[in-house]
Amino acid sequence: MTDASINASTATAHADEASFGDYFALLKPRVMSLVVFTALVGLLAAPVPVHPFVGFCAILFIAIGGGASGALNMWWDADIDKVMKRTKGRPIPSGKVEEGEAMAIGLALSGLSVIMLGLATNWFAGAFLGFTIFFYVVVYTMWLKRSTPQNIVIGGAAGAFPPVIGWVAATGSMAVEPWLMFALTFMWTPPHFWALALFMRSDYDDAGVPMLTVTHGRRATRVHILVYTALLAILAVGTAFSGIGGPIYLTVALVMNALFLRGAWRISRRTEDDSEFDNFKVERSFFKLSLLYLFLHFGAILVEALLKPHVLGGWS
């Protein structure tokens, strides 16, 4: 064996070695961006001013807590991630990171984020972050995801907690307004994910995850999307008349909910043949719209909050 062949075999053996980016990917950066944004809105919409550096640290540790739960989710779900096309490239199924490493990183970052958020802001916020991680990892990932078709509905709660944590980090207490933000994300999650499940159709079947499309059929899923979207519209428009709403938010809510309801109505009227014919064009555009929907609603809450000191935000 020559030096060249030894070097070549060494290079091949280490080709799938994890880089720093692979470890970062365990934290689900895309989900983290949603967590950062909604938690920031919760923090800034609170009626208590926060020192900018403390606010930055609060958002950072909420994001790390969200990332830690993502890593623990990837550790537990490594078997299904291997089967699903959407998740095959994740660090564990691709063989770059070992399951044990993901668990260790997830646990370490969970502890770190809870303690640091508690120290930076208050222990109520720290405990709330700890509960959110527990809810996402134990209640959703380990228990409900594989046992009920309502997995997305209940699991959506975990993704909806960040604005509440942001609010609690600022105020140290609870109020109705952060729960309205929670409800907005909570009600938005099912239509968002069910639209994805409609066009990523074989993925959940192959993995044996009891997604609504698998257990109750695709027609029932289409109807569910419409019902949840209608309930969401009532909630989203109603929030305009609360302490975090105002004319700007109301305008955004009216336009976005009209568009979202139109999309859900079109999905409910379509047959599988219609969807197959245009490669799920309507379902895909509804999914894309859902991302913009949440961003604009929280963006409008943020604008109202930022304008309040200048007597321009809210209804006053």
Binding site: H14, E17, A18, S19, F20, G21, Y23, F24
Partner: peptide
């Protein structure tokens, strides 16, 4: 080989 990882840490 591990430069990026060490730098990141």
């Amino acid at each position: 080989r591990r430069f990026s990882r060490n730098l990141g840490v």
